Simulated scan of single mutants.
Amino acid sequence: MHFNEPKDQFLDVIYWGRQLLAILMGLIWGYLGLTGILGLSSFVISNSIAVYIYSINFNVENDDVMQDVKEGFMTSFASFLVSWILIYSALYF
């Protein structure tokens, strides 16, 4: 058994949960027609807050919450942008 297995599993949950949340948020943001800095900043803030709340409530080791918040952020940001742009373009152009 790997020594750090529970932490790795926790980070996997954060990573994949963040991906799903980002795609869902991209679909919603695109449908609502949000654009520009409002759309980008609201995604960053709400996605980070959601992961932070999840981390402080379910992290069994409470060692570094900010590391949890950074886990998988850039890939979730890319997923958000793709889904946001596709839905917005399909509905408004």
Results as ranks from 00 to 15, higher is better:
Ala22Pro: 05
Trp16Tyr: 14
Phe43Glu: 07
Gly33Trp: 03
Leu38Tyr: 10
Leu40Trp: 15
Val13Ala: 13
Ala22Asp: 01
Ile23Ala: 15
Trp29Asp: 11
Ile28Lys: 05
Gly39Ser: 14
Met25Thr: 13
Leu40Arg: 10
Ile37Leu: 15
Tyr15Ser: 05
Gly26Ile: 09
Phe10Thr: 03
Thr35Lys: 10
Gly17Met: 02
Gly17Tyr: 01
Gly30Gln: 04
Gly30Arg: 04
Met25Pro: 00
Gly17Trp: 01
Gln9Val: 09
Ser41Val: 13
Leu20Gly: 15
Phe10Ile: 03
Leu34Glu: 01
Tyr31Met: 10
Ile28Leu: 13
Gly30Trp: 00
Glu5Ala: 13
Leu20Pro: 01
Arg18Leu: 05
Glu5Asp: 12
Asp8Pro: 00
Glu5Gln: 14
Glu5Arg: 13
Leu21Ala: 12
Gly39Pro: 01
Val13Pro: 00
Ala22Cys: 07
Leu24Tyr: 09
Thr35Arg: 10
Leu40Ile: 15
Gly33Pro: 06
Leu27Tyr: 12
Leu38Cys: 00
Leu21Asp: 04
Trp29Met: 09
Trp16Ile: 09
Leu32Thr: 07
Tyr15Pro: 02
Phe43Gly: 05
Ser41Gln: 11
Tyr15Asn: 05
Leu11His: 12
Gln9His: 14
Gly26Asn: 07
Thr35Gln: 14
Gly17Gln: 01
Gly36Lys: 08
Ile37Met: 14
Gln9Leu: 14
Gly30Ala: 06
Phe43Val: 11
Phe43Met: 09
Ser41Asp: 09
Gln19Trp: 12
Glu5Leu: 14
Gly33Gln: 06
Phe43Thr: 06
Trp16Gly: 06
Ser42Cys: 11
Leu38Glu: 09
Arg18Cys: 02
Met25Asn: 00
Gln19Lys: 12
Ala22His: 05
Leu38Trp: 10
Phe10Asp: 00
Gly17Leu: 01
Glu5Pro: 01
Leu27Phe: 14
Leu20Val: 10
Ala22Thr: 05
Arg18Gly: 12
Glu5Trp: 08
Pro6Glu: 08
Glu5Gly: 02
Trp29Lys: 00
Ile23Gly: 12
Gly26Met: 05
Leu27Trp: 08
Leu32Ile: 06
Leu40Cys: 11
Trp16Cys: 03
Val13Asn: 11
Thr35Tyr: 07
Leu32Gln: 10
Ile14Lys: 00
Trp29Arg: 00
Leu34Pro: 04
Ile37Lys: 13
Leu27His: 03
Gly17Glu: 01
Leu21Ser: 08
Ser41Met: 13
Gly26Gln: 06
Val13Met: 10
Asp12Gln: 12
Gly36Ser: 07
